[in-house]
Nucleic acid binder design. Structure first.
Lengths: 218, 218
DNA sequence: GGTAAAGTTGAGGCTGACGTCAAGTTGAGA
DNA sequence: TCTCAACTTGACGTCAGCCTCAACTTTACC
């Protein structure tokens, strides 16, 4: 009795849903958003058919499991950055924190590098997060520390690179990305700037790139 | 008549081999070293069985088609760099030229980012090429232009990033990599340097990363 | 406790790739 | 021109993942 909203879901079914949500979170964290559903089902002690019955698709499962968590983590990173007194430190901290998220959670790695076709809620999380990033970057630019020709869209390059680096080195040299990121940040300071050869991606181009990516996982 | 080495290969067979070599070069260039062999066979007007009969494996086909070309192009890039009067300009030119190779030829993209398990000749080409890169980098470091804490192994980060960026943006924004590379190079100048958090990958780690990469194509 | 509705299962079909092999085709020397 | 070794073929078996559905099991309500 009680909440009518889920009255129609039987107790055993609800237990399975909860187990699936939990194991999906675990498996996505460990193996990324392209992990085989088989692995998730198995960890939940259930067959893959159940996943399809309960959620309908991988995308829906992702949307049920990942966005809230992702949003929390990204918000926290942004809040930490905005709390920094020094605008450059805030920007650097933000980028580093986001990269840390990528390293610690392959699901977030896929979220942050936009490696997730067709998941509505996640797309929204990314959009919001990009606005936070824009504020953080603009503050650092207004302060003169972040080079003026940097565009938020360029952050995508950073996060893509980081995503890939993490995938490659997670087992062998799990801190390698920090070195790469340090080089990158050094190139983003105003003092380091030399003329750029090309304009930043437009938001439309970013969309197009995402759309065209298809199966080409990082 | 003529070369006894291939006396035993029938004329039609030799024609097929030549057609396969040509179409493999084309397809690898357009689609990378993981292109379906089916595509290569089809363009040569032949069935995939023929590829296996003639070459035995994808790796052997790659080794027959790619290394010489790759070596030529990489040597040329290195020569251009060493001919530069200014050591930094030479270094920057080298990196840019290599990235251009990646952009113009997805086979080279895979070679340069070491995306090719089990191909002996290519591995040797990479090794040689890395020695050239080391010389070019060391000259720029001796001149004080390239930051002293940069290691040749770090170039791999650059080429990996570039490989991925090219795959993602080839159709939408084929020059995007130039912008990303410009940021990167700005971070490699001595003037931009801040302390790095981690040591460079050791050659052994590089090996390990390559070995562990397995199917995880860029 | 009986039963219908809800839930779960796992085999099976699909896809797109790889690599193999028995059978058919063809070139070149006699 | 004939013949057979050399060559090519394409159907086949495999693999790994996705998704579906008819048959089976369990729950919860009466």
């Amino acid at each position: 009795m009680g909440d009518g909203a889920v009255r129609s879901v039987r107790a055993d079914a609800r237990r399975n849903i909860e187990k699936l949500v939990q194991s999906a979170a675990d498996v996505f964290r460990e193996r990324g958003l392209n992990a085989p559903l088989e692995a998730i089902a198995q960890r939940a002690g259930v067959s893959t058919g159940t996943i399809y019955h309960r959620f309908g698709s991988r995308e829906a499962l992702i949307d049920a499991v990942v966005p809230d968590y992702a949003e929390d983590q990204l918000d926290e990173a942004a809040a930490g950055a905005e709390a920094c007194a020094d605008p450059w430190d805030g920007f650097a901290l933000y980028v580093e924190r986001v990269c840390e998220l990528q390293a610690s959670n392959l699901a977030l790695n896929d979220v942050i590098s936009r490696n997730h076709p067709g998941t509505a809620k996640l797309a929204e999380v990314c959009r919001r997060s990009q606005e936070q990033a824009r504020r953080i970057a603009e503050r650092a630019q207004a302060d003169g520390a972040l080079r003026a020709d940097f565009a938020v869209e360029d952050l995508l390059f950073v996060f893509w690179s980081n995503a890939m680096l993490i995938r490659f080195t997670a087992e062998t040299a799990p801190d390698a990305w920090r070195r790469s990121l340090a080089f990158t940040l050094d190139g983003l300071r105003t003092g380091a700037a030399h003329e750029l050869p090309t304009a930043a991606l437009t938001p439309a181009q970013v969309e197009q790139v995402m759309a065209g990516r298809g199966r080409a996982a990082i």
